[in-house]
Design a protein around this nucleic acid. Sequence first.
DNA 1: TCCCGAAGTTCGATTTAAATG
DNA 2: GCATTTAAATCGAACTTCGGG
Lengths: 349, 349
Amino acid sequence: MVTVRDVARKSGFSVGSVSIVLNNAPLARYMSDEAKRRIKEAAHKLGYKPNQFARSLRGIRSHSVGVMVFDVTDPFCTLIIRGIENTLYEQSYLSIFADAHNERSRFERYLEMMLERRVEGLIVVANWLVVDINLLADLERHRIPTVIVARQIQRQSVSSVLVDNENGGRMAIQHLYDLGHRQIAVLRGPKAVEDSGLRWSGIRRFAKSTNLKLDPRLTVDLPDSPDANYSFEAAQHLTADLLQRKLPFTALLAYDDVTAIGAMRALTNAGIRVPEQCSIIGFDDVAAASFTSPALTTVRQPMQAMGATAVQLVSEAIRAGSEKRDFSPVTRLLAPELVVRHSTAIVRR
Amino acid sequence: MVTVRDVARKSGFSVGSVSIVLNNAPLARYMSDEAKRRIKEAAHKLGYKPNQFARSLRGIRSHSVGVMVFDVTDPFCTLIIRGIENTLYEQSYLSIFADAHNERSRFERYLEMMLERRVEGLIVVANWLVVDINLLADLERHRIPTVIVARQIQRQSVSSVLVDNENGGRMAIQHLYDLGHRQIAVLRGPKAVEDSGLRWSGIRRFAKSTNLKLDPRLTVDLPDSPDANYSFEAAQHLTADLLQRKLPFTALLAYDDVTAIGAMRALTNAGIRVPEQCSIIGFDDVAAASFTSPALTTVRQPMQAMGATAVQLVSEAIRAGSEKRDFSPVTRLLAPELVVRHSTAIVRR
DNA sequence: TCCCGAAGTTCGATTTAAATG
DNA sequence: GCATTTAAATCGAACTTCGGG
């Protein structure tokens, strides 16, 4: 292992000078260019890499950010992770990664481990499960910049990044409306999930503004569940039930893509052709959405951008902290985007 | 921050004694039980947590393992990541995570950053892209235990964990054969991907043993590509081409699930019903496989187990290293599993 | 005033050699 | 000499102080 001492010996300067030059410390302006050059050259030749532990021990930056995901298995979050990774990379941060597995105890233990490693910031990807209050209190107790992705939080110290759910809900229903659909079934998400409520209010607002009637008997909720993939089966059953009630509908608006795909399966099984006899629209634009037959029309969440934005927020907050400026947490709502594929069509007359 | 000094003050002993007791060092047997009790109590009361940086600085363990993924976006690797995470968690390791983005330069930079953090071991998830030779040399230069998942490597110092591809290929073809299929199209993976070759040799071996004829005109290769998701489109085109040639086939064996789903789309588009007119079988058992209509029959890779095994191998190697024992790298082949869903059926006469 | 160096201190935990009764 | 405990050195970087030219 090459240390400052080695560089000092090789370059003929003292450890102090080496440290000053290599860190571009204020005192470096008193050093001659020649000295700087020689020191840098020696460092490079020896392949000197400052020991991160020694730096961190001195309370300098740890150059790492904690990334806590609630469920890596959820297809929704892989692109978010890429966005996070990508942007952290650009800013030379390394990420300490943890999959909380939707378990509170894991979350807490990981949080502690991350704090021990002195992460400079924390990004929580809160897919699916409800984040309970105590857990947020945990996040608030420590004083490091925290951003939560895909969930809005009303707290003093935590920023949020998420898609504009209300607007997204509106885009979905409007797309169906524009295609001429008037009898629309809505498969809402679990009641405990806030996203679902927001999307629903976007839907309702649009309906009200256009005098579209949404039959309450055609509006059903997914059950609460800790498993994101379970919603596929649940959606299948709910849709099958819906069909049995013999209430006509020409389109189905689903809470998310997995739900939509489940619904599509139920319709196909019942001999109903998509989109000729029934249109389907999802939400998220998960990878699997383009793999279905027909390919799923959906409202895309800009997941990679969400990840990138999260990193920008923490990194701003970190900078603010180190410069002793204030940084009040913000909520960033990113615009969703309608992706028209082949699961929606003009209504048959 | 509570330090040893605080514990020492509170308990009335010296820092040294505190350290000795709390770490159960050899010298601890000379300390009175009473002293031990009081020290432990004080530490507990103060909520003392040893500073990881200080420990690591002294060359003790860093308690972290690097996890390098070539492409997080690939649905294939999320379950592997979960397996890795899960097992690392059990062993109290924290993971430093990086997404190499299929780029060599990123890989190298991340590798360097990880080494700076003194990761005790390294796990590389080599989905899709070919790992080039130089890169392996990089892995070999440093002396930390390394395991590569999903790729077999003939090197002195790197262990491998992967599915038994050859056997998996055999299982796939045998399933089709058992259903009565004799005219089978095979969509192989890119030539540069070793997995594909191994699966193919399993297929050929089975064919030979049963006198099944595989028409070379029905065997096509996916093009090499840096993007895992591109294979969906490629498979679609290849299958469409195949259909145009008017060579009859009653089943299609695809390199992996994404490929299979692409092929399924092409068949559906051409008005061919799956599985009634053509059976399809995939490989991997990605999440999307159960979402297609009909649900995809496939050969499952035990991805979570692969991740877990990788961790076990590094952790064994780390232990061996710290006890100055030898640990020669091994290759672990995990058994695939046939998952029969609804995309395969008995051949029509 | 400008340029540079030597030496010492700090961070927190571990480990050694040494000192106490 | 023995059982117990402790002071001091160590790890590597960074910053401070003082001092010389």
